[in-house]
Amino acid sequence: MNQVLNGDTVIGEGGRLIVRDPDGDPVFETGQSPVGDYFTRMRRDDGALALTIGANSYPDDDAPSQMVRLWSRAGDIIVMDDYYADGWLGRPSLPVPWQSTGSTVNHSGGLATAWLAYIRAQNPVLVLRTQTATTASSASVEFQISNLSRGGGYQTIDSWSVTAGPATLHTITHPFDGCEHFNDLQMRIRHSTSGTGLVTTDVLGAYTRNTFSATEVPTAP
């Protein structure tokens, strides 16, 4: 018998379905893994992983819950849901585009918006790197987020001071606390000067990424 034309084929009680290529490498497996979870795994002809669903996709894999992962030919995970944060995209990392304003360069005086960004949250953690230079005695910079999906106003996430002299680099790593996947977020960077002088803030780059530890899981809304 080599056909199933009607009805179900059932593999249960810890069994597995395995499809092997002519060399004996398993290219498709599904069922219960040796460690107990139920999984699906697809490989290329050479045995390299291609797609996995489960908690144990490779030796010593200790994923806390079943994950969906897509693998490159070189063996790197290029698409996955987040390892620690349920409901979030883990990979790929996504760039955050920023728009400058008329106050980005050579601003003087009170707080003014230098940069604006608008995204739909996919990854759970934001990484933002800025550079600020001032000719004033000092300048202040702040980063804020507004969760538009929840009707909230701007919340200050981080603020820092800059003194005259070489440009000051600043990096923010921020889990999207109080947010859920696919929330609409508007972000802004504002700066000001103390006394006479000018301030310029540049966004060197920004992206969202997966969590690196359980401590980076965003808090619930």
Rank of each mutant, 00 (worst) to 15 (best):
M1G: 15
T9S: 14
V10C: 05
E13G: 11
E13A: 15
G24E: 11
F28M: 15
E29Q: 09
Q32W: 03
S33F: 12
G36E: 15
R41A: 12
R41L: 14
R41C: 09
G47H: 08
T52K: 05
N56I: 02
Y58Q: 13
A63Q: 13
S65W: 10
Q66S: 14
M67P: 01
S72R: 02
R73I: 01
G75R: 03
G75P: 12
M80R: 06
D81I: 10
Y83G: 03
Y84N: 11
Y84F: 15
G87C: 09
G87P: 00
R91A: 06
P97I: 13
Q99V: 11
T104Y: 10
L126W: 12
V127W: 08
T132C: 06
T132L: 10
T134E: 07
S137K: 14
A139S: 10
V141A: 10
V141Q: 04
E142T: 00
I145C: 07
S146Y: 05
G151N: 11
G152P: 05
Y154Q: 07
Q155T: 11
T163C: 07
G165K: 04
T171C: 11
D177A: 14
L185W: 01
I189V: 08
I189P: 05
R190F: 04
G197W: 06
V203S: 02
T211W: 00
T211Q: 01
V217P: 02
P218R: 04
